[in-house]
Write a protein that binds this DNA or RNA. Structure first.
Ligand code: FES
Ligand code: FES
Lengths: 150, 150
DNA sequence: CCGTTTTAAGACAAGGATATCTTTTTTGTT
DNA sequence: AACAAAAAAGATATCCTTGTCTTAAAACGG
């Protein structure tokens, strides 16, 4: 699998926040119910995203999480980096240590092209872009239903 | 991680066999020592590859494994398919069930392009091609040393 | 001040991937 | 026939990811 469940859930949750828009705090409970993701697991994921500075969190009644700063400055690439780390974007496809042009495995030249394509794809998608797509309709963030705010 | 350890090891072992060339049986023990891969684990992997028809195996003294049929007909793509299955080449990047144009997630259009690029990269690399590359020199299949037959 | 809502943090359980070990079966050699 | 070499098969162990549960801390409203 390309991404861990942690990243899959984390991206879906962040894209959902982008779709909702605004700078209101949304409770993790609500998000987990809307997207059919385990509440406790999602809580852990948001804690990681908070430590990475991608979200703000606030406790107490009407608390929750929200995208930190501007959604136009955060990319899917950043979310993956915060949750899964840099391995996908830096490591050898065969798992050999030190993937460089000087010590290539037989797939190196081809792999780094695909790897860059993935990274670029994730880097050019800002949360703001996806939020607009979601609101325009036709896309989904969970099984069985098109996106809606709640 | 893109590929499981099973696929990483399996590809390295198959590429090694391609580098050795010929239709002699090579013992799994020898391969595991040459590539620094756990012998027992590699045995399991070759058993899967045998069931998929990508290798022949033979027991007893001077037995071992060899590429089945022609190395020019087997691709890295086929090895991954046999060991990790088709998920990488068919599933939604966000893990949603049923990745199709009709029920797209917000990353669908971009992801299927990257996904196809990966599949094509792996499909155009035959074992024969890589075997020739290895023998020409300059590539590695293990940490710390360029490829050699043993 | 007290109770409720919410995130934070930590403990724990279930599962799969990875790794190791032992036994069995096949084959070749002496 | 006896022995050795090698893959096949199965049992078990270790680790990491995933998932659940419990308790603590913060914030708000009455
Ligand atoms: S060394 Fe293998 S992809 Fe770079
Ligand atoms: S539906 Fe998500 S990649 Fe196709």
């Amino acid at each position: 699998m390309l991404l861990s469940k942690t990243s899959e859930y984390g991206i879906r949750a962040m894209l959902h926040l982008a779709g909702v828009g605004g700078d209101e705090y949304v409770s993790v409970k609500k998000i987990s119910e809307t997207l059919d993701i385990s509440f406790h697991f999602l809580t852990k994921i948001f804690q990681q995203l908070a430590k990475s500075g991608l979200i703000d969190s606030y406790r107490g009644p009407n608390g929750g999480v929200r995208i930190s700063g501007s959604a136009s400055k955060i990319t899917v690439r950043a979310v993956v980096g915060a949750l899964d780390g840099e391995d996908l974007f830096s490591k050898c496809v065969l798992g050999l240590p030190g993937c460089t042009k000087d010590h290539p495995c037989p797939l190196h030249e081809h792999w780094i092209k695909s790897r860059s394509a993935i990274e670029q794809m994730m880097s050019e998608k800002t949360l703001e872009d996806v939020g607009a797509d979601l609101r325009a309709g036709g896309y989904r963030l969970k099984a069985g239903a098109l996106w809606s705010e709640d």
